[in-house]
Design a protein around this nucleic acid. Sequence first.
RNA 1: GUGCCUAUAGCUUAAUGGUAAAGCGCUGCUUUGUGGAGGCAGUAAUGAGGGUUCAAUUCCCUCUAGGCACCCCA
Length: 430
Amino acid sequence: MAKSKFQNVTGMQDVLPKDRKFFDMVERAAFKIASYYGYERTDTPVLEYSELFEKGTGQSTDIVQKQMYNLTTEGGDKLTLRPEFTPSLVRSYIQHGMVSWSQPAKLSAIGPLFRHERPQSGRFREFNQFEIDAIGDKEPILDVQVIFIFVKILESLGIKDINVHVNSIGCPKCKPNYRKLLRDYYRGREKSLCKDCRKRKKLNILRLLDCKDEKCERVKVGAPEIVDHLCMECHNHLKGVLEALDYLEVPYMLSPHLVRGLDYYTKTVFEIIPIEAEEKEGEEKVVSLVGGGRFDGLVKLFGGEDTPAVGASMGIERVIARMRKTGIKTPAVKLPRIFLVQLGDRAKLRGMKLMEEFRSAGIFSGEALGRSSIKPQMVLADKMEVDYALILGHQEVAEDTIIIRDMKSGSQEVIPMNKVIKVIKKRLKK
RNA sequence: GUGCCUAUAGCUUAAUGGUAAAGCGCUGCUUUGUGGAGGCAGUAAUGAGGGUUCAAUUCCCUCUAGGCACCCCA
């Protein structure tokens, strides 16, 4: 197994051809649907200045505190392998003056992200996400469009048993009030909480709502819910989101305890979760396939105009794991229908040229130019289940002819080389 | 970062305190320029490094990788 002294880095994996087919399938579905709704692909560098994430993703988040791959260049620049897309895309929005585009600017992105966490199922140190962001519009319908697009992407990949969890975490106006209410509620109840939550209470009290510990769950039941304490603007925004989801018949539920871990979220937050995983909670881990929300303050935080925005991203590896689990197959690979068999050096050369002629004519041919004897080539042709083998030996090269062998019947005939493309084309049509 | 489990040929598995077996795959042979079945042969492994022992792949430790849970998240 491990003969080489080199191995892959923990949590980072090789994508072999059979895996790649799944990636391609997901990417194709994602771009097809997102681009229909106007989201255009944007690529940003894998490396960014560390400060972008420290400021954007947020100092208080686990991502920034302990999961970033940081490096310092010889010149002293502090760089980070991107742990998420949103800050990069917002940076790009400001830097390239997308403010002057028709708003909102609709961007999509795909590629690897890096977080130094302990790998486990559905979690890697290098992983791929597909993200879409609509920057420059505050209407709730944009939130819903983002959710809707991901639901449609998942559906088109055959993942239909999903549920969208939605919540609002308010804005800088109403969030502080709610925080205070929560603090008041939990004051005196510390003893009923798990160890972690006692710590969390000081760092970010909203996180208490996320805990799955039984004891905490019990305390949580009586806790004030943020949806009851939103300011008018946030309340109406949430109402607009839910109404649109209803209208579009998106399967969702309001999850008052959904809190997301990134600092920049405002108002709407959501996750898309497979239903089966929810039902089997305890046996199977609940992993969200998509997560996102509104980040109305981020553009301004980076020095741009005060610009509302909303976006989300999908974990490609997680979606693929889901597809595999539910038995979804990738489309069959296109196999060649003819196979070139060659004997002798001159035939190899002539064969190489012939294949190019076939390629220009749009005909896909198999080959084994590395082989010199005829048998293994025939075996391969058989395995590939081609319709015809084209045999090119010394004699054929000399006479400028080629043998066409019908693999099913075993009959074969010699035809002039200059007619072979025409003949094969005709036969393959049948 | 914490805890638990795992590690035998390319793949799937077997076995043992005395240097490892099989199936699949791959390569070749079974007519000298012709495939599909069957037969024959070949190929290749105890993740790495220590320790205990007369002897370890088997027991112990460390490392590495993989899996899982916590944390957190896509």
